[in-house]
Simulated assay, not measured.
Amino acid sequence: MTTKAAGASANVLAKTPGTQKKLWLAAIKPPMYSVAIMPIVVGTAIAVAETKTLQTGIFAIFVFAAILILAWENLANDVFDSETGVDIHKSHSLVHLTHNKSLIFWLGNLCLATGLFGIGAIAAMQKDLTVVGIILLCCILGYIYQGPPFRLSYQGWGEILCFFAFGPLAFAAAYYSQTQAWSGTNFAASTIVGMSTSLILFCSHFHQEADDAAVGKRSPIVRLGTQRAAQLLPWLTGSIFALTAVCVWLGVFPVTTLLVFASLPIAFKLCKHVGATHNKPEKVSNCKFIAVAMHFWSGIFLGLGFVLPQLLGLGTVLPA
């Protein structure tokens, strides 16, 4: 399947101005950038809870850099997917919308270079290259996820790579950028946000099962089938809340982090929707946006739970 042929097929739907606008919004994926922001928000919240200080300049630079690096990954993935034919029906692919794969490729590289420049600025301010090393490792995981010759997402490793890149590694970088130290509490929280991030990718494959299988992409949905994957989803989603409760019970998290349970209605909505529509691509396709909402609000409530004791004048209940 050539890029030109795939693009011609995908662009059949992209005729009217209204459709074009919707396709561009879908291609840019504004809600998805919470994936880049949330590890920094929660990791920084934990650093503030433990040190009672916030380096606002470093935080702002890190958020901006993370958004650019995720933009690179999204743009690069569109380019790499256009080469395999997996996105033949993806009318909102930027490669299909622009008819210019080279432009998207180099625009992605520009985003990556600018984002890494921001991370380098943080390292220069701190005279410490640790954060640069961690983020470079995240970028390597981002490349081997979809980039040739690795394309590990085609072997079903995407969710695992996503977990580490946006969980432990991103959290470690965010926390270290504030403290130049490490934290067991931060690591524990990273597994929760890492899981919710991987769930977004997991959910994004339900409506793509046929296209993925056609090109040999062995995503978890292809391996399990939509019905078994839908049955597994409540257990994966429930792990976010179970891990939080266990960490509170063990004294690793303050009790206020149980605020994360306020996002439970979104989790129920996600599981119910996927359970009812898992084998109906046109109806289940929006489940990834429900997963994004759950990721965003569970992350916000988790981060707030760490800083709330100080905001209420209760001091910190985190272990020393």
Results as ranks from 00 to 15, higher is better:
residue 253 F to K: 01
residue 263 S to L: 08
residue 270 L to Y: 03
residue 268 F to D: 09
residue 245 A to E: 04
residue 273 H to N: 10
residue 255 V to E: 09
residue 246 V to L: 14
residue 253 F to V: 06
residue 271 C to F: 03
residue 247 C to F: 09
residue 262 A to F: 14
residue 246 V to S: 08
residue 265 P to V: 15
residue 249 W to Y: 12
residue 273 H to Q: 14
residue 263 S to A: 15
residue 263 S to I: 08
residue 274 V to M: 03
residue 263 S to H: 05
residue 270 L to S: 06
residue 273 H to A: 12
residue 265 P to W: 10
residue 250 L to I: 04
residue 253 F to I: 06
residue 245 A to Y: 06
residue 261 F to V: 15
residue 264 L to M: 15
residue 261 F to G: 11
residue 270 L to T: 00
residue 261 F to Y: 15
residue 256 T to S: 13
residue 257 T to S: 10
residue 270 L to G: 02
residue 270 L to D: 02
residue 260 V to N: 10
residue 261 F to K: 11
residue 271 C to R: 03
residue 261 F to E: 13
residue 253 F to N: 01
residue 268 F to V: 15
residue 250 L to F: 05
residue 261 F to C: 10
residue 267 A to Y: 01
residue 259 L to S: 09
residue 266 I to P: 05
residue 272 K to I: 12
residue 251 G to R: 04
residue 254 P to Q: 11
residue 273 H to C: 05
residue 270 L to I: 07
residue 260 V to H: 05
residue 262 A to R: 06
residue 256 T to N: 07
residue 248 V to T: 05
residue 269 K to A: 15
residue 270 L to V: 06
residue 273 H to L: 10
residue 265 P to Q: 12
residue 250 L to P: 02
residue 268 F to C: 10
residue 268 F to T: 14
residue 245 A to M: 06
residue 250 L to R: 08
residue 255 V to Y: 09
residue 272 K to T: 15
residue 250 L to C: 04
residue 255 V to F: 11
residue 264 L to C: 13
residue 260 V to R: 05
residue 262 A to S: 14
residue 264 L to T: 15
residue 275 G to Y: 04
residue 255 V to L: 14
residue 251 G to A: 08
residue 248 V to D: 03
residue 269 K to S: 14
residue 245 A to K: 06
residue 252 V to Y: 01
residue 260 V to E: 11
residue 270 L to P: 03
residue 246 V to M: 07
residue 258 L to R: 05
residue 265 P to A: 11
residue 261 F to Q: 12
residue 251 G to T: 05
residue 259 L to R: 03
residue 267 A to D: 08
residue 249 W to R: 06
residue 270 L to Q: 03
residue 247 C to N: 12
residue 259 L to N: 07
residue 249 W to A: 08
residue 264 L to P: 00
residue 245 A to N: 06
residue 263 S to G: 15
residue 259 L to A: 13
residue 251 G to W: 01
residue 258 L to C: 09
residue 274 V to W: 04
residue 254 P to K: 08
residue 269 K to N: 14
residue 256 T to K: 02
residue 251 G to D: 08
residue 265 P to S: 13
residue 268 F to Q: 14
residue 271 C to H: 01
residue 253 F to T: 07
residue 249 W to N: 04
residue 273 H to T: 12
residue 255 V to T: 11
residue 254 P to T: 10
residue 251 G to N: 08
residue 248 V to H: 00
residue 256 T to V: 09
residue 275 G to F: 03
residue 258 L to P: 01
residue 272 K to M: 10
residue 264 L to A: 15
residue 245 A to S: 09
residue 271 C to V: 13
residue 269 K to G: 02
residue 271 C to K: 01
residue 267 A to F: 06
residue 251 G to P: 03
residue 258 L to N: 05
residue 246 V to E: 02
residue 256 T to E: 12
residue 274 V to A: 07
residue 270 L to A: 05
residue 267 A to T: 11
residue 272 K to Y: 06
residue 245 A to C: 07
residue 260 V to F: 03
residue 251 G to F: 03
residue 257 T to M: 07
residue 263 S to Q: 08
residue 260 V to W: 04
residue 268 F to G: 04
residue 257 T to W: 03
residue 257 T to F: 06
residue 272 K to H: 13
residue 266 I to C: 09
residue 255 V to I: 14
residue 274 V to F: 04
residue 259 L to E: 08
residue 261 F to I: 14
residue 273 H to D: 12
residue 249 W to L: 09
residue 265 P to R: 11
residue 253 F to D: 00
residue 266 I to Y: 08
residue 247 C to R: 00
residue 257 T to R: 00
residue 256 T to M: 09
residue 265 P to C: 13
residue 267 A to K: 02
